[in-house]
Design a protein around this nucleic acid. Structure first.
Lengths: 120, 120
DNA sequence: TGCATATGTGCACCTTCATGCACACGTCAA
DNA sequence: TTGACGTGTGCATGAAGGTGCACATATGCA
């Protein structure tokens, strides 16, 4: 297993996680937008600003929490969610670092010389 | 519209794109792994190392290309794909920058003081 | 031109998952 | 304890998309 394989595996391992799957859903991004625009809030307050049912918002927030994008805690009968900005930035930094490592050891950055590949 | 709204909209706009959706699929990540580990290759060669049908790999590569993650060009009757490392890193850098901007103007980074939120 | 190779595409099938409703559970106040 | 409120969950439904097969298209070669 050479340097490229190792770099690739580390990058894929980080990418293949609940993190990206949580962000790859437009409805969840709208939940994030509300959370950012209005600050920490309970599920009912967030759902009031979105078209989906409260139960749907509740599940989306659970997914975002499992992905370490938001944090939630009980407050009486409410559950307050807030963006976990520090962890979010940290995760993106790790992804960027691993991707840079891959780009460093692999694959031409600009173009593939076709003449090289044509006849092997 | 305040600073938080603007930062949120810019971040969501970048996140809600084919880029994240392309990376949020395990099968496509495996395609990327092959591409990184073995370098630029045609669709047949990539498909040989993966369990899916060639047509499936072809479609995955199309999705990755539309997301500016890989680049492809015809080479005779082959189509050679390669990781577009530079663009990939650049996209991640933009996402990280927008996310940092959001974290800067929004939302407590560590913890939400429950006592503050309890009684508004 | 005729054939082999490599890739693109229409189609059907199936899995995953977002969605909303009904209801159960937990918590607070009187 | 009782009722009101906020939230979690089981269930059915529908949409989106991954998958493989069959076939069409494109390219190179003799």
């Amino acid at each position: 297993m050479n340097a490229r394989d190792r770099a690739a595996s580390k990058m894929i391992e980080i990418l293949d996680s609940p993190f990206l799957r949580a962000l790859a859903e437009p409805a969840r991004l709208e939940v994030l937008r509300v959370l950012i625009a209005h600050g920490p809030a309970d599920i009912g307050a967030i759902a009031e600003r979105l078209p989906q049912d409260r139960s749907v918002i509740s599940r989306h927030l659970k997914v975002l929490e499992d992905a370490s994008i938001v944090r939630g805690h009980r407050d009486g009968r409410h559950r307050i969610y807030a963006l976990d900005g520090g962890t979010l930035v940290g995760t993106l930094e790790r992804i960027l670092a691993e991707t840079r490592a891959v780009a460093d050891v692999c694959c031409p950055p600009i173009d593939v010389p076709a003449s090289r590949l044509r006849k092997r």
